[in-house]
C-alpha cells in the first residue's frame, strides 16, 4: 500500500466543456468537431451521435459571447441549492448551445428577453472536502 499522499488541492472546472487558463479571464469553453461529418459538440466527445463514426475529434475554442435562446426562472431546486436563479440555454455563434445561469440581473421574467446578448464569465463556486476548488461559468448581459 502506498502512503496516503497529501495531495495538493487542485483548481478544477465544474463541467468538462470549461477549460481553465492561468487566470480567470483566460478561461474558455471548448468544443469537439467530428472530422468525419463536421458536427460540432460542446465538450469532449469520443463518438459521433450524428454520423456514428469514432471521430477523430478536433478541439475548438468556442466564443464567450452568445445570445439567450430560452430561459426559465427556477424557484424550487434540489436541496441546498439557493433559489431563485435564471437558467438559460445560450446559443453561441459557432452553432452550438450551452446551459448556463444568467447573473447580473434580478431573476424576474420582465428582466429577460429572447435573443438577449450575453457574455461569459467564470468564478470559483465551491470547494470539496479535499480542498479542491471548482470553477464554473455563467453569462451576464453584454
Amino acid at each position: 500500500m502506498a502512503e496516503a499522499a497529501t495531495a495538493t488541492p487542485e483548481t478544477r472546472p465544474l463541467v468538462p466543456h470549461l477549460k481553465l487558463g492561468e487566470t480567470r479571464d483566460q478561461d474558455y469553453l471548448a468544443g469537439s468537431r467530428c472530422q468525419n461529418c463536421g458536427t460540432l459538440y460542446v465538450g469532449p466527445r469520443q463518438f459521433c451521435a450524428k454520423c456514428s463514426s469514432q471521430g477523430p475529434f478536433a478541439t475548438e475554442r468556442l466564443s464567450s459571447n452568445g445570445e439567450v435562446y430560452v430561459w426559465s426562472i427556477i424557484h424550487q431546486s434540489r436541496p441546498g441549492i439557493p433559489t431563485p436563479y435564471i437558467a438559460a440555454v445560450v446559443d453561441l455563434p459557432e452553432g452550438v448551445a450551452v446551459n448556463a445561469n444568467i447573473l447580473g440581473v434580478e431573476p424576474k421574467p420582465e428582466n429577460m428577453h429572447f435573443g438577449m446578448k450575453v457574455k461569459m464569465e467564470t468564478e470559483k463556486v465551491s470547494e470539496d472536502r479535499e480542498g479542491n476548488s471548482y470553477i464554473a461559468y455563467h453569462f451576464v448581459p453584454a
Binding site: 427556477i74 431546486s77 434540489r78
Partner: peptide, 29 residues
Amino acid sequence: LGSGGDPATSPEGRVGSYIMPSVFGMAGM
C-alpha cells in the same frame, strides 16, 4: 428532483438547470 450527488461538484443552479421542471419550463418558453 433527485439528490444530484455531491453538492460541491453539481452543476445544477451554477451552470444552468437540468431538473425536470426547468426542462419543461424552457420547452414552454
